[in-house]
Design a protein around this nucleic acid. Structure first.
Lengths: 233, 233
DNA sequence: AAAGATAATATGCATGCACATATTAATGTG
DNA sequence: CACATTAATATGTGCATGCATATTATCTTT
């Protein structure tokens, strides 16, 4: 019991972490159950439970009722990406943000998205193309479908002062969604818009959000060359 | 009070979520404090606390002592990426995994990584190039530096039966790290290894892990064309 | 009125207890 | 011996209570 760490749940978590990192408890090994640890640390079982729950959330230990707690064999690398509104992302870089709506029309949903959107949509879909700038240099290119059944107010929005990206965050909160990250070669159109050469490797993401079982929006975002999405693990 | 949801903390969380999603509580608005909610739901304050803590973790509400709890103005889009060991990723796709160590030598750390590794390293660095296969088709290409001061046992490992990726997870647990995701064009070498054409857009990641203040490994992973990293949000 | 001390308050956390639930081990039965 | 039933057990959760801590509001004092 090396440290002066008190019997706070964070203190206990640190001690448990140490034992895992320093291999006192091997991967796959079962660790003492809550009651024993509580006695050892001289605290309530609730407090040990809190520490263990936290470790389980981060994937370092696996817990099962009756079976006990064991150190994870392959602790997954979990990384929490925070994907901010693009304006905030640009401003956090200390650069001036602006955006430009380059295309807007009502159009039927492309067949490619019928599966993703999972419902029979009328033609009540708004399609937008937007370019986001940082200090007047293109930062990202956005193609977006908005389900007007889910966000009817979007029909009357110009999206010139506030971007669809930001407007939707404030006006059409979602309950869940899917995100995928990938790389694309710049097409001629993309190269022109993002001020690069055809064929350049570009970082891209696609996101679909729902509220309940109603799809709200599908967005495909392609970042300018050199973009990196970073996070701590 | 619509649902039959009991006074479990998850039930209460769902009800709070509903009020936020349906705008009963506007963004930025202060919500009743724990004691009032506990009375309304007929449960203990601890239970409300648990639900609110969960919402705060996901960024939907902001909590401050004495100041109370308010609905977040710009709920950040948080996505938790789970980056598994490549073998598991491949096997989860129902494909057969194997890997091939194509290069291995002791070499000084390249200057480019001096900053990242943040310590004056001797020449005690192992450099590896590995190709990961799924059903005999290249899946990802890996370049890795291992700090042998942090993981001395790696010096004697062949990394032919078990990949460095997996060995390090089991034998050199890290306390923290940095991850970045980006896109690269296939060089001639990459194209050859990944069975694609020069210039193809490839999804890539770089990761550095430390234990305490000692760097363990730097890895650059480039996936074969078409790869998508997916997650729920 | 400005600055500093003090009180009030909402969340944060620890405790002891009880009961719920999932899972495994032990037991009984054909 | 195979299979279903039952008991045992570790975690999961809820509750009442008390105190800790951060932050705001209020009340001094100069």
């Amino acid at each position: 019991m090396s440290l002066a760490e008190t019997n706070s749940w964070t203190g206990i978590r640190e001690e448990l972490l140490r034992r895992i990192h320093e291999r006192e408890w091997q991967p796959g090994e079962q660790i003492p159950h809550e009651a024993d640890l509580a006695e050892e640390f001289g605290c309530a079982r609730t407090t040990v439970n809190r520490a263990l729950r936290d470790l389980a959330e981060s994937g370092l230990v696996i817990r099962k009722r009756r079976a006990g707690t064991r150190v994870a064999l392959n602790p997954p690398q979990k990384a929490t990406l925070t994907i901010p509104v693009i304006r905030e992302e640009v401003e956090a870089l200390g650069r001036a943000y602006r955006h430009s709506l380059v295309f807007r029309e009502m159009r039927p949903l492309p067949p490619m998205l019928h599966g993703a959107f999972q419902v029979a949509l009328s033609d009540n879909v708004l399609f937008l193309k937007t370019v986001h700038f940082a200090d007047d240099r293109p930062f990202a290119y956005e193609e977006r479908h908005i389900n007007l059944d889910a966000a009817p107010a979007a029909r009357d929005m110009a999206f010139d002062t506030i971007s669809a990206n930001e407007w939707l965050v404030h006006n059409a909160p979602y309950s869940h969604g899917d995100l995928s990250l990938f790389a694309v070669n710049a097409t001629d159109e993309l190269a022109g818009v993002l001020d690069t050469v055809t064929g350049a490797a570009l970082f891209a993401l696609e996101r679909i959000t729902w509220t309940g079982d109603q799809p709200i929006t599908h967005v495909r975002l392609v970042y300018a060359p050199g973009y990196r999405m970073r996070t701590d693990i």
